[in-house]
């Protein structure tokens, strides 16, 4: 329950990389959480976890390492929820996005 940032590094195994549906899935998970999440491949460009547009700016191909930083009361849980999103998206249950 501390405000200390938690970090995790994940490897993108989706064959396309972080494409639009991956970015949307990340943003939806972060929106539902009570933590602030940032993502980066290169620390010079950090994407806000709620912003699909910024996440697409990572341009992370398959095999790249993405660093996640979460701060907030459910930081551990949100990192746990995010980790599988970067695996092969086609093998996961399709997630139709919703408004809001």
């Amino acid at each position: 329950m501390s405000s200390r940032p938690l970090h995790r590094t994940v490897v993108v195994t989706d064959p396309i990389g972080i494409h639009t549906r991956v970015a949307v899935a990340v943003a939806e998970i972060v929106h539902r959480s009570r933590s602030r999440v940032k993502l980066w491949v290169d620390p010079a460009y950090r994407a806000e976890g709620t912003e699909v547009i910024q996440i697409l700016g990572l341009a992370a191909p398959s095999g790249s390492q993405v660093h996640l930083e979460a701060v907030g009361p459910d930081a551990e849980a949100v990192l746990d929820a995010l980790e599988p999103v970067f695996a092969d998206f086609e093998k996961q249950v399709p997630c139709k996005n919703s408004k809001g």
Partner: peptide
């Protein structure tokens, strides 16, 4: 697919 990602970037 790489070109698509770079355009989105």
């Amino acid at each position: 697919p790489g070109d698509h990602l770079r355009a989105l970037e």
